[in-house]
Simulated scan of single mutants.
Amino acid sequence: MKPSYLTEEAISSFIAAAFVEDIGPGDYSSLSSIPDGKRGQAKLIIKDDGIIAGVELAVRIFKTFDPNLEVELFVKDGDKVKYGDIGLVVKGLSASILSSERLVLNCMQRMSGIATLTHRLTEKILHTKARLMDTRKTTPNFRLMEKWAVHIGGGVNHRFALYDMVMLKDNHVDFAGGIRQAIEACKSYLNQNNLDLKIEVETRTLDEVAEVIEVGGVDFIMLDNMDYTTMRKAVEMVGDNYKTEASGGITEETLVPVAECGIDFISMGVLTHSVSSLDISLKAF
């Protein structure tokens, strides 16, 4: 099942904007060198081991640029791939293949890198109830695809943006004058504006966790930068009343101990903000 943010309008708008950025008034390299009507074919070659992502998007990109391009798929989103695998073959006007090549590769390489990392880290915590979750630390104008890649890799998408969930972080709390003030002001605002949104509150100490529990009316409690002992105590305090999220400086090395604290979700910005792309190329044959 696709995430709700993957609407036809959102995907189409992304592709249209990306083509404007990359092609502008014309792909003069292809237009000037390829004879009119020249047909060809190219294969997508996987040059890394990992999890492939962006396959469905690649078909959309090719078909958006030229509906007459034929795309034969040999893999699907979420499949494990290895060096030398062929992901797809595209056939049609040679100029159309070349004009859409870079956008396809840029998306698939980065999305596959994200899906591969997400999958690897998710596998490490399968023995716990914790689920790996992304953040808003994404590339401007590419969030849609980066979060899609996390989903394909087996991770959980956190809020998509500032408008689909309330997260009262440390700065919100400090500017509001405290946790109680921030929560009460938030609930009042949502009620006055007829907004039905989940509320998450970031906590930094056990005292702050206790205060959130006392005020109530929230859905998630974030445990930020807590050591393992403090986090376990916080999870015990929260119990089944709210979902808990661990956040802040969590690495691949500390992921498993954090998960074993009994946390519900673990958010890691590294999934999207500093991932290595999978090596993929498109070659004519």
Rank of each mutant, 00 (worst) to 15 (best):
Y5R: 12
E9H: 10
A10L: 04
S13E: 06
F14D: 01
A16W: 02
V20I: 13
D22C: 00
G24K: 01
P25N: 11
G26F: 07
D27P: 02
S30C: 07
L31S: 13
I34F: 11
G37A: 08
G37N: 06
I45Y: 06
I46L: 11
G50K: 01
A58R: 04
T64F: 14
F65K: 06
N68M: 14
L69F: 01
E72W: 11
D77K: 04
Y83H: 12
G84N: 00
G87F: 11
L88C: 05
G92N: 04
L93R: 08
S94N: 14
S94F: 15
A95F: 11
S99W: 03
R102A: 10
L105R: 08
Q109N: 11
Q109T: 14
T118K: 08
H119R: 15
E123Y: 00
K124N: 09
L126M: 15
L126N: 13
D134M: 07
D134V: 08
D134T: 07
T135L: 13
T139E: 06
F142V: 04
A149Y: 10
A149M: 09
G155A: 00
V156R: 15
F160G: 02
D164L: 08
L168C: 07
H172D: 05
V173G: 03
I183S: 01
E184N: 10
L190P: 11
D196I: 10
T203S: 14
R204K: 15
T205W: 06
E208F: 05
E211T: 00
E214C: 02
G217H: 07
G217T: 04
K233C: 12
V235L: 13
E236N: 02
Y242N: 03
K243C: 07
G248M: 04
G249A: 03
P257L: 10
P257S: 10
P257H: 09
A259M: 01
E260N: 03
G262P: 04
M268L: 15
V270T: 15
L271F: 00
T272Y: 04
V275G: 03
V275M: 06
S276P: 05
S276I: 03
S281M: 13
S281I: 14
